[in-house]
Amino acid sequence: MLTLSHFLILGAILFAISVVGIFLNRKNLIVLLMTIELMLLSVNMNFVAISHYKGNADGQLFVFFILAVAASEAAVGLAILVTLFRNLKSIHVDDLDHLKG
C-alpha cells in the first residue's frame, strides 16, 4: 500500500542527490543548472503527491507555475552560459573572476 510518505521520501532523496550534485560539480556551470532542474523536480514531486492525497488541485497548479518559471530560468541560464563561453572560451567557475578587485 503506497502512502504519502513514500512519495515525500522519494522527493527528499532526489533533493539530497541534487544538493550533493551541487557540491561535487561546483566547477561545472552546466551540471549546476541540471542539478537545479533536479531540485525543482523533487519539489514538484512533493506538490503533486500532497495534492493527490489532500484532494486539492491547487498544488498541481503550483507545479504548473513552477514549470513555467523553471523553463524561463533554463532559457536565460543557458543564454548566459552561451555568452560566457563565447567571451571566455570556458565555463569553468574559476575563470569567472572579473569582478575580483
Binding site: 515525500l8 521520501i9 533533493f15 539530497a16 542527490i17 550533493v20 557540491f23 493527490h52 492525497y53 488541485a57
Partner: peptide, 30 residues
C-alpha cells in the same frame, strides 16, 4: 558530499515517516 546527502535523507525520512503521513487516506478523486 555523500555524508551530507545521507544526513539530509535520514533527517527528512525521520520527519516524513510519521503517522500523519503514513495514515493519510487518499482523497476521493473528482
Amino acid at each position: 558530499g555523500v555524508v551530507m546527502g545521507f544526513i539530509i535523507v535520514l533527517e527528512l525520512g525521520l520527519v516524513l515517516s510519521n503517522r500523519y503521513f503514513l495514515e493519510m487516506p487518499v482523497a476521493p478523486a473528482p
